[in-house]
Design a binder for these strands. Sequence first.
DNA 1: CACTAATGGAACCGATCGGTACCGTCTTAA
DNA 2: TTAAGACGGTACCGATCGGTTCCATTAGTG
Lengths: 184, 184
Amino acid sequence: MPTNARQRLIDAAEKLFYAEGIHAVGLERLLSLSGVGRASFYRHFSSKDDLVVTMLDAYDQAYRTWLTERTDALGATPLAAFDALIEYAETSDFRGCAFINAIAEVAEPGSQIRAMARQHKDAVADYLRMLLIETGYPDDVDLAKQLLLLMDGASVTELYERSDQAAKRAKATAQVILEKAQRA
Amino acid sequence: MPTNARQRLIDAAEKLFYAEGIHAVGLERLLSLSGVGRASFYRHFSSKDDLVVTMLDAYDQAYRTWLTERTDALGATPLAAFDALIEYAETSDFRGCAFINAIAEVAEPGSQIRAMARQHKDAVADYLRMLLIETGYPDDVDLAKQLLLLMDGASVTELYERSDQAAKRAKATAQVILEKAQRA
DNA sequence: CACTAATGGAACCGATCGGTACCGTCTTAA
DNA sequence: TTAAGACGGTACCGATCGGTTCCATTAGTG
């Protein structure tokens, strides 16, 4: 049963960690943005890491909900997922994928974050695979993972290009490999 | 005219920052690994950021030298670049692209790191474009950037997959879009 | 109303951050 | 042999890190 303060902390964490990175944001920033007292923080989370994990969990849910809803609205095809990504990349506060950014900066191999990233990406790949099937493509896990790699490549490219060009480029590539899969 | 101590610091920076991230590595770690005294550090670098920039510059040079040499040895074709990446991804200390990791964790939009990343990626894209031309493909900047996006997608995917599967997947995708370009 | 639980603010902790100043040592070349 | 630089080691600086403790206030409940 999430308290008010707890949710405000998660919201602030999603904003700040995503925008500036995990190590770059201290507790003070999180507390002042959320308006939560320092003591209350530790009533809801055992540590900063605990908040990071919780925030990534919330991001996983929010991202996948957004992706499915927006992709469905845009035609519910594999290429529509790229159209959704293009829209996302056009927003001013877009800064790639929170999971990729997180594992790029916290390197510990046994970290929980890496396991969460793997699960998140598996779930997205599953969704892409389902889109393939529903659109009449053969059931092909590898193709779904190729599409995911394109989306992730676009996400990191946008980090230094800062336009939607990378996402559009990824869509163009996806189109080619989908055509080839169609013919098979 | 780089002194001995200066070069040792750059070497230590390349290892530690790449392996563990920039914020995660403090000066103490760099000094103890390099065997350089604290005072000597500030005789050669004005700040930690200065070392970061210098290290990224060294990485840019080392990476591109490695890429061209290894790609040439593997056939000097666009696909050979992916074979080189596959080899790289198989090494135990591989942790993606240092520039991508850096801009994933330091977010400041006006940061020098972002500009350096852009230049680095442009240089790699130029090399891929040259490979395309030399292999008989039409001169196509967009195609070169698509290949680069695939390599970067593979780099970040390896961060959580930790195998060479992602690089091989990227190569397979590259093969498809190269075939299509061939026919054009 | 009164009791309880949750809260925000602030003082405080040890540890570490990036950065500065000083000192003794070693190398090198005149 | 001696003067000059470059060096590594260490003590120190203010600031901030994540985390703990106490307290007064607020919100909710019977």
